[in-house]
Simulated scan of single mutants.
Amino acid sequence: MSFSRNRHPIDRQRLQEKGMIVPGGPTTALLEEFRIVKREVLRKARENEQRDHATSAQRVLVCSPLPDEGKTFCATNLALAIAAEKDSEVLLVDADFAKPSVLSTLGLTSTGPGMMDALANPNIKVQDCVLATDVPGLWVLPAGNQSSTDSEFLSSNKTKTILDQLTAGAPHRMIIFDSPPALVASPAAELAKHVGQAIVVVRADKTGQSALEDALSLLSHCPDVKLILNGTNFSPSGRRFGSYYGYGS
């Protein structure tokens, strides 16, 4: 499936002010950290695809146990890092339907429909909701209009159909979902059923062990759950961003 080529400019000044990866900018410690993260994500995706021949291998869920732990920061930076790949492209999906923030993070505006509209309205094609950006290899799918039944729509059979459409004919396209925190909204647990990997963002000195364990339990439908430790000030290796751990089932 191909998307619109009408490119929307990313606000690079906004990204810089937020301390994020700036496309075309200098190499930073943050960029190097997300290069490490994306390399593991892409390696695992190719491994899963070769073994299982499943389209879910191209999908990655990014969430956190609780709010304000950095999930959108990590999801967006991971998407920007993958977009720089020569052999991959990426679709960043704002799946935080109650409190979407991907568009504002990137400095994008859209008055059109999004993922939830495509799920709720059979007359809306999901590919028509996708925004092209001026960053080569990066597309964005907005959350769409809010719904009090977002979890019910996600649990319907149409979800798999729409997600399969997003990667149809595009074997090198990765989909990154920025979902709501797992312990405060149900979409994360629903989306975990449709992805090959899930990344849980935990914040140093904030995320408690019990909250993390509860979040991992809710995401247990995903066969491969990893953690990103965000907001660290010290690492034995000298890295400034944090550490990357794996939980495999």
Rank of each mutant, 00 (worst) to 15 (best):
F3A: 07
S4D: 10
R14I: 01
R14S: 13
Q16G: 12
G19F: 05
M20R: 08
M20F: 06
E32F: 04
E32P: 14
N48C: 01
Q50I: 09
R51V: 11
R51P: 00
D52S: 12
A57R: 10
V62C: 04
P65R: 07
P65W: 05
E69C: 04
F73V: 06
A75N: 02
A79H: 06
L80I: 06
L80D: 07
I82Q: 01
E85C: 14
D96M: 08
A98P: 00
K99Q: 13
G107F: 02
S110T: 02
G112D: 00
G112W: 05
A118Y: 04
L119K: 03
L119Y: 00
A120L: 00
P122L: 05
V126Y: 02
V126K: 07
V135N: 11
P136S: 09
P136H: 02
G137E: 05
V140N: 04
N145R: 15
T149F: 08
L154W: 03
S155I: 01
N157Y: 10
T159S: 01
K160R: 12
L163T: 06
A168S: 12
P171A: 05
I176K: 03
D178K: 00
D178I: 04
S179N: 02
P181M: 07
V184N: 14
S186N: 10
P187E: 08
G196Y: 04
Q197C: 03
Q197S: 00
I199E: 03
V200W: 02
V202H: 07
D205K: 15
D205L: 13
A211S: 09
L212H: 00
D214A: 14
S220E: 14
C222D: 11
D224E: 14
V225T: 14
L227T: 12
L229N: 12
G238I: 12
